[in-house]
Simulated assay, not measured.
Amino acid sequence: MTTNSSYPLSKRQRTVKSRSLSFNLLCVLRSERQRNAIPLGHLLERLGERSFGWAILLSSLINLLPLPPGATLVTAIPLVFFSVQLVLGRSYIWLPPWIAKRSLSRSALRNTVLRLRPISRRLERLTRPRLQIVFEPKVERLVGLVLLCIALALFVPLPLSGWFPAISLFITGIGFVERDGLVVIAGLGLGLASIVLTVLVALSVAAGAETIMH
């Protein structure tokens, strides 16, 4: 069903819409409470689709979990894989078994979703289908290329360097799920800024190390 954005949403519609992502995800996690860990492929199936939006959203959440230093060298791999598929022009995510079977801690994922609700709820209130040109095949490939660069920034083993790219990918994922091109562009812009920040931090660390050595 297509929503005409020319008409204001009712109070009830706004309430349902404002919880469309985090609420649905929390409901799925609650229904899986008998599991300590949930495979990524199973979680995507429970959410009802294997779209790029949900795949990017969940993968960014993985990188926002409390993880030991250097863990992003592993957790960023699915994001790179999904971005490459987007660059290649695929319509839906294909999950190889080694990614589909990757288990996520249910409690840690739930806590991360709750922690990010102030961000996600504000975005969900603002999102609506717009700037659909972003989702045209040729443009989506360019989006995928930018996402790939942002995902690669997660591999840089610097303190907190992965947090900003992961947040930008989280925002981009919301934009994809809601088909809001403006939110996708905002997420990509934040991601590019995070790459610049990562480069500056890396240069500062390198300069500091050189100073100590000499």
Rank of each mutant, 00 (worst) to 15 (best):
P69M: 15
G70Q: 03
A71W: 05
A71S: 08
T72M: 15
T72W: 11
L73P: 11
V74Q: 14
P78R: 03
P78L: 11
L79N: 04
L79H: 07
F81E: 06
S83M: 02
S83L: 03
V84H: 07
V84I: 04
Q85K: 10
Q85T: 15
V87R: 12
L88C: 15
L88D: 13
G89C: 07
G89H: 03
G89D: 01
R90C: 10
Y92L: 12
I93G: 07
W94P: 10
L95M: 05
L95F: 03
P96C: 12
W98N: 15
W98L: 08
W98F: 15
W98Y: 13
A100C: 02
R102D: 13
S103L: 14
S103H: 09
L104C: 04
S105V: 00
R106C: 07
S107K: 00
S107N: 13
A108I: 00
L109H: 01
N111G: 14
T112F: 00
V113C: 03
R115Q: 13
L116D: 02
L116A: 06
R117M: 15
R117D: 07
R117A: 12
I119E: 04
S120L: 09
R121T: 08
R122H: 11
R122E: 14
R122S: 14
L123I: 01
E124S: 09
R125Y: 09
R125T: 08
L126W: 09
L126C: 11
L126T: 06
L126H: 13
R130W: 05
R130I: 05
L131N: 05
L131A: 15
Q132P: 02
E136L: 14
V139Y: 00
E140L: 09
L142K: 12
G144W: 00
L145K: 05
V146K: 03
V146C: 10
V146S: 11
